[in-house]
Design a protein around this nucleic acid. Structure first.
Length: 467
DNA sequence: GACCTCGGACAGTCAAACAG
DNA sequence: TGTTTGACTGTCCGAGGTCT
């Protein structure tokens, strides 16, 4: 006998499943140190509608640009490398060849190419962001979090796979990158982090334009050497020239000793291996090594997530043998497992119970109106860990699910009404110098409780419920 | 090493609750 | 009426045990 499940029409499956490409590629270890192209995007860019508040973190660190007291050389160098690579190597990753300032958001493909084309980083593994960029939405739609891409209507038409095809990088991952970087910025308020070198998305044009620009600069100053970086204490390198040409006011100069240190690092392949690349190091970068540093927590989380597998696929109805053995089944009858064990005769669909009806439910928790979110954000300080009363270890455990590549692409931004969250850290708040704030930026957003957003499963909802 | 067992995490479904 | 919520139910991962 067929069960209701069996009778239900098979929902359309996307023809091309990008899961293996997109999900494992999001090696979040990179995200702990987002590219400068991501960093360039103030996290207000989460929303194409532009947001207005909660930018304390970036503003704070931006104001510290002029300070070089705690200047961090590796970061600067990485930024320079990547930027240089972007100039010289950014090419095919964008479909239209432009980097939309309005809609690019995090994870721009330009950055991805930059990362790979950078000499100093040449042996680093392919950036997951590059992989994402291969699927980059030509219209920049992947930066439009809650608008036209995902339509979560419970119809099943928007499977996670479809979303993957469209969203090259999940909104939450983008958000996390931004968010993560806010940690860093504010963890080191005096650090003129690359993200703050630029007040907004750089005016990059097409690859050709960039090349022309670079060639002009190199010819003008006569110190160009392909993609290699040459430093001079008196004559700025072409790379620096390039930077300065567009962002000069925002780029603090390197001292002689800093350049010497850079050469030393390059000579020792400091950036040439994944082990020693600051992007991967858990111990050498000041951004991640601070005890209790949010950045470190995120980095650890990211590392955990990078090892996570793609989302598990289930068959609608396992055969009785697989069901009994609690083993993976498939749609075929006999299924592969039954064939393997010679159980083809008994390989039939198991029956499913009929869902009970008429069960009374309690009132659903609804999200408070946006007008209350501002005060709600205050309640989230000083740390996100404390944001949810009664949840111990909330930051270090559930966030794993929160950041899960298998779920973050689905939640919490899958709703058409979903508005991006703004995250930021305020250096002025909190006992540890951090204060976390977040808020939705569109009034139309009717979110799930944070519980479902973070866990991706209502299983956790009761734990996070905030009455 | 292959297979079995099974607790529990995870995934998918869908009716109730809700908002406009 | 369309959307969201979250309970319900099934799937199957993965650890531990047993067998060959």
């Amino acid at each position: 006998m067929s069960t209701p499940h069996q009778l239900s029409p098979i929902k359309q499956e996307p023809q091309v499943k990008q899961e293996p490409l997109s999900q494992p590629s999001v090696s979040l270890s990179y995200h702990a140190q987002p590219s400068i192209y991501q960093q360039q995007q103030p996290y207000a860019n989460f929303s194409s509608t532009s947001t207005s508040s909660s930018t304390t973190g970036s503003l704070t660190s931006f104001q510290n640009l002029t300070s070089t007291a705690n200047y961090n050389l590796p970061r600067h160098l990485m930024a320079m490398n990547m930027q240089h690579g972007a100039v010289s190597g950014a090419s095919a990753s964008t479909t239209n060849g432009t980097n939309s300032a309005a809609g690019s958001g995090a994870g721009t493909p330009v950055m991805a190419s930059a990362h790979l084309s950078s000499n100093a980083l040449s042996s680093a593994p392919p950036s997951p962001i590059l992989n994402n960029s291969l699927q980059y939405h030509p219209n920049g739609a992947n930066s439009q979090f809650g608008s036209n891409v995902n339509s979560n209507s419970n119809s099943g038409a928007n499977s996670p796979y479809i979303q993957h095809q469209t969203y090259t990088q999940s909104p939450y991952q983008q958000q996390q990158q931004q968010h993560s970087y806010q940690h860093q910025n504010n963890g080191h308020p005096s650090d003129p982090s690359p993200s703050n070198y630029y007040s907004s998305s750089p005016p990059y044009g097409t690859h050709q334009q960039q090349q022309q620009q670079q060639q002009q600069q190199q010819g003008q100053h006569g110190s160009g050497n392909g993609s290699h970086v040459q430093f001079s204490s008196t004559a700025p390198s072409p790379m620096r020239q390039h930077q300065q040409s567009q962002y000069a006011p925002l780029v603090p100069p390197l001292s002689e000793s800093q350049y010497a240190q850079y050469h030393q690092l390059l000579g020792s392949s400091a950036f040439s291996s994944t082990q020693s690349t600051p992007y991967h190091s858990n111990h050498t970068t000041p951004y991640s090594s601070m005890p209790g540093s949010p950045t470190r927590e995120y980095q650890q989380l990211n590392e955990k997530q990078s090892a996570q597998k793609p989302k598990r696929r289930q068959v609608k109805n396992a055969c009785v043998n697989c069901q009994k053995a609690c083993k993976k089944c498939d749609e075929g009858r006999p299924c592969a497992r039954c064939i393997k064990y010679g159980l083809t005769d008994t390989c039939v669909d198991s029956t499913r119970k009929v869902r009970k009806k008429g069960i009374k439910r309690g009132p659903y928790k609804r999200r408070p109106p946006p007008s209350q979110l501002g005060s709600a954000s205050a309640s989230t300080t000083p740390t996100m860990r404390n944001a949810v009363p009664g949840v111990v270890g909330y930051m270090s455990e559930p966030v794993t699910a929160l950041n899960s590549p298998t779920q973050s692409h689905m939640l919490p931004f899958t709703s058409t009404a979903g508005a991006p969250l703004e995250f930021g850290y305020d250096t002025s708040g909190g006992p540890s110098g951090y204060s976390f704030h977040s808020q939705r930026v569109e009034s139309s957003y009717t979110p799930p409780s944070y519980a479902t957003s973070y866990s991706g499963s209502s299983v956790y909802a009761p734990s996070y419920s905030m009455s």
